[in-house]
Structures are given as C-alpha cells and as structure tokens.
Write a protein that binds this DNA or RNA. Structure first.
Length: 204
DNA sequence: CAGAAGATCATCT
DNA sequence: GATGATCTTCTGT
C-alpha cells in the first residue's frame, strides 16, 4: 500500500502505474463486467495537482438501462458514451456537480461506469476520506471538470491501472428506485470500506 | 420557448 | 425525511 512506502519508492510506484494503464480492450466489454473489474484499480488524476486513489465504488450504466443517458439514443451530451471506450465521460448535473464516468463497450455501443467513491492514497492528504465518497464530492476533490470530457484514461491527465491488489470481497447493491424495472444490479462496492457511501434508501 | 427532471449534497427537523 | 442550492439538457408545443 502506498502509505507504507517511502517517498521515493512511492514515486516510482506511481510512475510504474502510469506506464502501464489498462488498455482500451479492458473497457471495450460489457458494462457490468467493466464496472465490477474496476473495483480495486488505481486512479491517477493530474489536473491541478497529482492525485492517486483506489476505486472502491462504481455504478454501471448500460445502453438499454432506462436510467442511462443513452437509453433514448445519442444526444449531444451523451455522445461520448457511444464513442471510443477507455475515455472519460464528464457531465454537469444539479447545477453544481461534475460526474466522472469511464466509457465502456465497443465503439458505437453506449455504456459507461460512474465512479462513486475512491480511497485516497497520494496527494489527497488534506482531504478527508469523507470528501472522496459520492460522485460529486469526488470530482471536487480530484479537480475533475467538464473540460476533461473525453480525456483518455491512459494519460496524460488520467490513468487507470492495476497494482495487483484485489478487494477481498465485492458486493452489488439491489435494485433501487426507477431502475427496479430493469431487473438487474448495477452498483458495485467493496463492503464495509470506510470510503464507500451509505447504501441509498430504496424508494417505497 | 417553457417546463420538468436530474447518475447530488448539505442542512434542517 | 424533506428541502433548497443552482443550471443544463431534453422534450413537447
């Protein structure tokens, strides 16, 4: 783990991860598989400053999910979901929050995974763990903005890499709210992880 | 062009 | 559990 390393070995650990980001093929698969496999992976973001964190909670948005932006075809906003996999899809919502997603599925087929919570490792010392859970708080902490829409996840600003760590356990939430109609599970997280947000309440 | 909804969050009761 | 902040996107007319 990063906190156990000395400053210089931690630096080379980060550099090594930047040199071997996950390939486009990793993202060019069905969205649920990509979402599940993203848990435990390392996210490096170089915007205002360099941050390194571990992904601990995600949410899958397949093309035919009624809750997905892509469920009613391509629009200017959700166009990135139809484009090259392995890129960022960033959008603005509720007048104040940017959401960070990774584009999935082969080109032409829509899909994305929302990054909901990360565990801070490097460069987020001044930010409490509670500021990196929740998709809106997370982008604030990492400095992700609309201008990062369509940035590749293989650098020079975003990298997602595998450091060999495997979460001991992975859980999927039940069906919630509007998406109860979709008959599938979509949110994945590391159970009992301190950075994972509370499971949302079910409507009704 | 108007109106509504929204992949959220902090705050209040 | 409810509400307000704050604004973009999409839909319907």
């Amino acid at each position: 783990m990063a906190s156990e390393l000395t400053k210089s070995s931690r630096h080379s650990w980060v550099r090594k991860l930047q040199r071997s980001p996950l390939s486009t093929d990793f993202y060019s698969r069905d969205t649920l598989s990509v979402a599940r496999d993203l848990l435990g992976k390392i996210l490096i973001v170089d915007t205002k400053c360099l941050t390194v964190s571990r992904i601990v909670e995600v949410e899958a948005y397949s093309g035919d999910d009624p809750a997905s932006h892509s469920s009613r075809g391509m629009t200017p906003r959700c166009a990135p979901m139809f484009e090259v996999p392995g890129r960022a899809y960033v959008y603005f919502i509720y007048g104040m929050y940017e959401m960070l997603n990774f584009v999935t599925e082969p080109k032409g087929q829509p899909g994305a995974v929302l990054i909901r919570a990360v565990e801070p490792l490097v460069g987020l010392e001044g930010v409490g763990k509670l500021r990196t859970n929740g998709p809106g708080k997370l982008t604030r902490a990492l400095g992700v903005e609309m201008s990062h829409n369509r940035e590749p996840l293989q650098g020079p600003r975003f990298w997602v890499a595998d450091d060999g760590f495997r979460p001991p356990e992975i859980a999927a939430s039940g069906r919630i709210g509007i998406r109860e109609a979709t008959e599938r599970q979509w949110r994945f997280f590391v159970p009992d992880h301190p950075c994972v947000s509370r499971e949302p309440r079910r409507k009704n």
